[in-house]
Computed example of a mutant assay.
Amino acid sequence: MTSEVSRRLTPPERYQFGASVRSLLVPKHDPCGTFRDGELWLSVRTPQGGATLHLARAGGELVATGLGPGAAWVVERADAIAGLRDDVAEFPALAVRHPVVARLARTFSGVRMPATGQVFPRLLRAILEQKVTGNEAHRSYRAICRYFGEPAPGPAGLVLPPEPAAVAASAYWEFHPLGVEQRRTQALLRAAQVAQRLERCADSAEATARMTALPGIGPWTAAEVVRTAFGDPDAVSVGDFHIPNTVAYALAGEPRGTDERMLELLEPFRGHRGRVCDLLAMGGLMAPRYGPRMPVRSFARF
């Protein structure tokens, strides 16, 4: 019999549910989650076993329902997953330091940053996103989830995120047909081997230190992880291909920017620098593009 646990949550005024939780899902199709008809379904591995979280609006509330052996665990964390533990009290005073940020902060005042408490699933995705196009990375992510897939509880037809032990026990060449070359695969295998230690990290700083101590995982990857796993609003993805240009263009009118220039422009918003980057993305602010686009490749065909 499938366990089921429910809880009612009270979101803040003007809360934007879809915009707050969409970052939890790989675009277009995520085997481990879906947002449809204004409802979120998300599969997770908990200390008590697999679970599926269902979040849906009911009047002015959110109803969180957990299914499966880990139902109680995921429902207890449902408010964090929905972004309701995100503390934005200090941000309006910082946002007014730049008119663009102030405008976006008003427009997206109902968006909150989720904190899943799940490091390895987001780390898997971040490693796959290193130095390749988003389409290529997400295609590999979907293939890996299906390859290691176990049915998640509930009616949504999801699979549970890959079990770290199963990933760690795999040979690197098993990932080649899934579209991942040896360099990223080796980083993923190292992460899988220490996944339990990563999941026990107390905060964003400890997780960042442990992740970046692993070969093949740098500050960009760590920031992508802690922004979602811990809801860290200050995590900046240093080393990103686009974000320095976006920040330089949006905040200084400069079409190109370096990591150093990006951090200089974001310094007035310290404590919420990652939130500012997210706002610029939500607002559709992008620097002019020059030159050819990065080609989409398939390592599975090499």
Rank of each mutant, 00 (worst) to 15 (best):
F299P: 05
R227E: 06
A64P: 13
I217R: 04
R197K: 12
A205K: 02
H176C: 11
G49L: 11
L25E: 07
H176P: 00
G154K: 02
L265T: 14
F91M: 10
H176E: 15
G59S: 14
S3Q: 07
T107G: 06
H272I: 03
P164Y: 02
I243K: 06
L160W: 06
R256I: 00
A287V: 01
H138N: 15
G149P: 04
A143W: 03
R106A: 11
Q186K: 13
C277M: 02
H29R: 15
W173Q: 14
R139D: 05
A166K: 13
M262W: 03
Q130A: 00
A222N: 10
T46P: 04
L25P: 02
G83W: 02
E150D: 07
L279C: 09
L25K: 10
P27W: 13
P92S: 11
H54R: 02
W173F: 14
R261I: 07
R125W: 05
P219K: 00
P295K: 04
G83H: 09
G83L: 10
L9K: 00
A80C: 12
P215S: 02
E224G: 06
V74M: 10
G38I: 01
A64E: 14
A222D: 07
R227I: 09
T221E: 04
P151D: 14
D30C: 10
P31A: 12
A102H: 00
G117K: 10
I243L: 14
P99I: 03
G216D: 08
G149I: 06
A300H: 05
V111G: 01
S204F: 05
K131N: 15
L67E: 12
V132L: 08
G231R: 09
A72C: 01
V296Y: 09
V159W: 03
K28N: 15
P11E: 01
H138S: 13
P121K: 01
V26D: 06
H242T: 12
Q48T: 04
V100K: 05
W41S: 11
T133N: 01
G284H: 03
M1N: 06
L55F: 06
A137L: 02
R8D: 13
M294L: 13
R36S: 11
R146D: 13
D79E: 15
G60L: 06
L104W: 09
A166E: 11
G83A: 05
V21I: 15
H29V: 08
G149L: 05
G149A: 07
S140D: 06
V5Y: 03
L9Q: 03
R97G: 15
L123H: 10
R8F: 06
R146P: 01
Y15I: 03
T107M: 08
P161V: 03
G291M: 03
P31K: 01
D232L: 05
A152E: 11
V44Q: 08
R22G: 05
V159F: 08
M294R: 14
A192S: 08
P27Q: 07
R146N: 11
A187T: 08
E4H: 06
L280P: 02
A93H: 02
E90C: 05
G59I: 12
T221V: 07
V276F: 01
P151M: 08
P244G: 11
